[in-house]
Each structure stands twice: as structure tokens, then as C-alpha cells.
């Protein structure tokens, strides 16, 4: 039953992916990308990764859709058609090659839900067995994220701050006083 659900969701994801590639209207493409994220979140929920699903729904379907729309309003919402067939062919070859390499990489990975998978035998048993006594909070994802891996989370927060500083450096312009701005907008009227 769960397998059928997985397959249906994956088929939807592939269909939306193809639709995004074929669309020239970037507004519709952004909306489809948001639906793609929402479906991914559903997939994560079905796979019992609730925290990941939550993040995907909030970030992928929520904030990045909004930021993409804001970007479209700065640029253009229509993709320029490229007539260069050779460039397209090179792109197709690169994408096919990378995809094949990725699929080849999954061949020797343990199958989904395999209890003998290495990930379930390295650190996970330690976290599951000891975190109720050591940390004492029910959500072990939070225990790992904020305490056992606190250093990594600090790094991530710093990265987010650095990203914002980068955008501020690129986008923010020198501060113009309100009066000066009015003068710029209406020359001749704002003097005095």
C-alpha cells in the first residue's frame, strides 16, 4: 500500500519536472516548482521524516516560491527561446551523463527501509538509546540537531546570515533621505 503511494507520488514528481522544463511561462514554472516541493514534503511525510517534510513545505513550497516571484517581478516572467540547437545538445548530453552517473551511484546503496543499512548501525543506535537519558526531550531530531550536532547547526545559522549579508551588499543602495528622494522623484517641486 505504502509502495503504491510512493510510486504515485514519484510519478507526479517526474510529470511536474517535465512540465517545468517544457514551460516558457516562468510564472507557471515557479508555481509548479512550489507544487513539486509540496509533493516532496508529502513523500517525506509518508517516509516518516516529519521534520524534513516540515522544512520542505515551509522553505520549498513557501519561502522560495515567494522569493522566486519577487525575482520574476524584478526581471521578466517569460523565458527567451534559444534557437541554438548545438548548445541544447551539449546540455542534453551533460544532463544525461550526470543522471546516469547518479543512478549508477544508487546501485550499491542499501534498499529503502533495510534494517542492515550502515546508517542504522553507526551513530543512530547511540542517539536512540542514550538521548532520552542524556537530553530528555521526546523529539530526537531536535536532540541531534541542537545538541549532538550543535556545532553544525551553528555553522548553518552563520551561513544563512552570510547569505543575507551577501544579498544586502548586492541589492542595498546608499541610504537616501526622504526629502532628497522626493526631490529626485519630482524635480523642481521638491526644492525649498
Amino acid at each position: 500500500m505504502i509502495d503504491i503511494l510512493h510510486i504515485i507520488l514519484f510519478v507526479f514528481l517526474v510529470a511536474i519536472g517535465i512540465a517545468i522544463i517544457r514551460l516558457r511561462d516562468l510564472f507557471a514554472a515557479v508555481m509548479l516548482a512550489g507544487i513539486f516541493s509540496l509533493l516532496s514534503a508529502t513523500l517525506f511525510t509518508v517516509m516518516d521524516a516529519v521534520d524534513v517534510a516540515f522544512t520542505e513545505a515551509a522553505v520549498g513550497a513557501g519561502i522560495s516560491t515567494l522569493l522566486m516571484l519577487a525575482t520574476l517581478s524584478v526581471t521578466s516572467s517569460e523565458e527567451k527561446p534559444t534557437a541554438n540547437r548545438r548548445q541544447a545538445l551539449i546540455g542534453l548530453i551533460v544532463v544525461t551523463f550526470t543522471g546516469a552517473a547518479l543512478i549508477y551511484g544508487t546501485l550499491d546503496m542499501p534498499s529503502y527501509g533495510d534494517p542492515d543499512a550502515p546508517i542504522h548501525h553507526h551513530m543512530a543506535p547511540r542517539f536512540i538509546e542514550d538521548s532520552p537519558e542524556e537530553i530528555g526531550i521526546p523529539n530526537q531530531v531536535t536532540s541531534v540537531l541542537a545538541s549532538y550536532r550543535g556545532y553544525d547547526t551553528w555553522g548553518e545559522t552563520t551561513v544563512i546570515l552570510a547569505a543575507a549579508i551577501g544579498v544586502m551588499l548586492l541589492f542595498a543602495t546608499p541610504v537616501v533621505s526622504r526629502r532628497r528622494e522626493e526631490e529626485l522623484l519630482a524635480p523642481g517641486e521638491g526644492s525649498g
Binding site: A70, I137, S147, T153, I160, A164, M168
Partner: peptide
């Protein structure tokens, strides 16, 4: 510790998201 640390993450992420949107628009 977890409470304070998560509060720090929340403050940063919230203000960064709002700032990014403001700057773009």
C-alpha cells in the same frame, strides 16, 4: 541550551527571510 540555541536560529532565519524579500521587491 536547546531552547536558547533554537531561539537564536529562529531569530536569524525569520529576519533574514523578511530582509531578502524586502530587498528584492
Amino acid at each position: 541550551g536547546i531552547l536558547l540555541v533554537e531561539l537564536g536560529v529562529g531569530l536569524t532565519v525569520c529576519s533574514v527571510m523578511a530582509t531578502l524579500f524586502f530587498l528584492f521587491t
